[in-house]
Write a protein that binds this DNA or RNA. Sequence first.
DNA 1: CTTGGCACTCGGGAACACAGAGTGCCAGAG
DNA 2: CTCTGGCACTCTGTGTTCCCGAGTGCCAAG
Lengths: 337, 337
Amino acid sequence: MLDDRKLAVLRAIVEDYVSTNEPVGSKALADRHNLGVSPATIRNDMAALEEQGYITQPHTSAGRVPTDKGYRLFVDRLSQIKPLSSAERRAIETFLAGAVDLDEIVMRTVRLLAQLTRQVAVVQYPSLTRSSVRHVEIVPLAERRVMLVLITNTGRVEQRVVDLPEAIADDRVANLRAVLNACLDGCGLSQVPETVADVPERLPPEDRPVAATILSVLLETLVERHEEKIVFGGTANLAAADFSIGLRDVLEALEEQVVLIRLLGETGGLSELTVRIGSENPYSGLRGTSIVAAGYGSGDRELARLGVLGPTRMDYPVTMGAVRAVARYVGQILAGS
Amino acid sequence: MLDDRKLAVLRAIVEDYVSTNEPVGSKALADRHNLGVSPATIRNDMAALEEQGYITQPHTSAGRVPTDKGYRLFVDRLSQIKPLSSAERRAIETFLAGAVDLDEIVMRTVRLLAQLTRQVAVVQYPSLTRSSVRHVEIVPLAERRVMLVLITNTGRVEQRVVDLPEAIADDRVANLRAVLNACLDGCGLSQVPETVADVPERLPPEDRPVAATILSVLLETLVERHEEKIVFGGTANLAAADFSIGLRDVLEALEEQVVLIRLLGETGGLSELTVRIGSENPYSGLRGTSIVAAGYGSGDRELARLGVLGPTRMDYPVTMGAVRAVARYVGQILAGS
DNA sequence: CTTGGCACTCGGGAACACAGAGTGCCAGAG
DNA sequence: CTCTGGCACTCTGTGTTCCCGAGTGCCAAG
C-alpha cells in the first residue's frame, strides 16, 4: 500500500515543511531531495498519500502539508531520535549540577528544556504519592501551635501550621516526633495512612488528642497535595513560532494545572518518550500543538514527568532527543542528592 | 496653561480610547461626553494638548491617542481609584482564606489579580531579608548529613542538605539546634550574619567544626536566596489585549526574574501604589506596557511587592483599585497565619 | 473665546488584474 | 505496470487603483 518511495516522500515532506513552514510542492521536493524520480511521479505518490490521509493541501492549488496522521507515521517509523551534541550534554550537566534544592532543580530544568528545544517546557514536581518519607519534623511555634514539616526522599518539603487543642510541652513534642519518625521513616507516602494508624497506641494516653490533630493535618496535606505541582516556562518561544491558531488558547491551557497534568500523560516506562500529536491530545484548545514528554526518576522508579509543548510542526527528532536527555539527567541529579 | 476644560477633554480622550481602542476624534467626544462645547472648540483644545505632548495622532488625519505623558497626567490628577464592589471583596477574601501555606497564598494571589484585572499578574514572595527567623531546624538524615530547615515569620521555608566533616550524635544535634534557636529566634534575617557569630562560643569545643559548616551553609542560603523569588500568571490575557508590539518581548521580559523584580520597583510606602507608564519603565522591550504595583506586608513592614502588567491602554482606576485591594488582603492573610 | 463652514489629508476597504506555484490528467515511453 | 513530460486549470497572494469618510486645521463671523 505504501511502498518505500512513498514513505520517503512523506519523510521529505515532513522535513521540508518543518524547516520552511510552507506547503511543499512536488517540484521543490524533487529538487531538494534526490529521490531519483520526476516531479510527476512524486505527484502521483502525493495523491496516494493524500488519499490515505497522511497529507493534505490547504487550498486546491498549493503544496501539501502533513496531517497529524502523517506526523504520527513519521515519528513512529520514519525518524530517528537525534542525540544531543556532547557540548549540549556537558551544558546540561553543569547547569543542573549547580542547583541547590528541589525548587531550583525544577526551575533550571524548565529553562534548560525551553532553551534546548525552543519550545514551551513543562516540568512536574516529583510526585508525592510515589515518594517516601525521609523525615517528619514538628516545630513548636507557640504554646498551642506547631509547624508540621514533611521532607521526602526526593527533596520535596511540605509544611503546614497546626493549631492544637491543648498546650503541649517541648519534651512531649520530642517524644511525638520520635514516635512519628520511627513509624514513618522510609515509608512510601501512599502507605502513610495505614502506617500512621499505629501511632496513637505507642503514645501515652494524654498525648493522643494532640497526636490525632497533627495526624489529621498530615493526612490532609497528603490528600490536598495529591494534585501534583507543575511548572512551565519558555512561553516566549510560542510567540516566535507563529502559531496558526489561538496562542491565547495555548496560554490558557498552560495555566490550568489540571490540563497540564493530563497533557504530560500517564506513565510510559521510565524515560520512555510519549508523543501526542495535535488532535491526539485530550484538550480541544490545543489543536495544532504537540507534546513530547518523558518520565523521570531516580533508580527505576518514575517520580514524575516532564516535556515540551510546541506546534505540531516541530522538529520531532531533535525535540525527542532533548527531552529524553534532560529526563535522564534530572533523574541522575535527583538520585545523587 | 491647561484650563479645566482641556483637562476634561484629556480625561474624556483617555476614557474613550481605553474603552474603544480606537483613536478618538473631536466629534465623537462632543457626542459622548457632554462637555457643553462644540467639536470645533474641542479641536482647539486638542491642538493645545498635542502641542504639549499629552496626546498624539497616529496619522495625519485620525483621532487622537494619549501619550505616556497623557496617561501620567490622567493617573496623577484626573482619575480616582475605583474601589472594588463588595462582591469582589468577598470573593477575594474567601479565595485567599482558603490557602494553606505560603506557596498557595502566592499562587492564589496571582490568579486572583490576573482574573480581577484581566491582565498579567506578578507577585513577589515575601522578601527573605525583610523577614525574621521563626525557627531553625536541623534534621539528621544520615551519619554525616543533616538537612537545615529555616522557617521565617512569613511562612517561607528554605531547606538545604549539609554534608558534615564528621559524624555527630543526635543529642549533640539537639544541643546545637537549641543554641541556634536561642540565638536566632525572632532575629531579622539581615541581622543573622552578626548574630550568628556568637554561636560557636556557646558550644562545647568539639561541636564547633560541625557548627561552622552548618552556619556557613546557612549564610550561603541567605545570600543566594537574596535574589527574590517571583511568580507570574495570566499571560493568556496578553493574547486577548491585542498587543501593539512584541508580545514576544513581553513574554521574554516576564521570564527574566531580574527584569521582573526591577519592574515591580522599589518600595513606596506600604500598599502605596506605583504606576509605571510605558516609556517610564526601565526595560526597552516593554514599550507600550504599564505596570501597576503595590507593596504588601503584615503590620507596618513591607515584605514584598505585587502588581500587574498590561498595555499602557489599560483602565487605570479599576486596575489600581484591584491591586491595592489585593495587596491589603494579602497582608492581612500573612499577618494572620 | 466659541462656533459653523470649508477645503484638505490620509488610511483603509473594495474591486480588479496578474503572476506564479502547484495540481490533475493524459498519452507515450520503458 | 510504472514513470515521465506536457498541458490546461485553479487557486492564493500581491500589487494597483480608486474612492469613501472620518478627522483635521484654519478662517471669519458671532
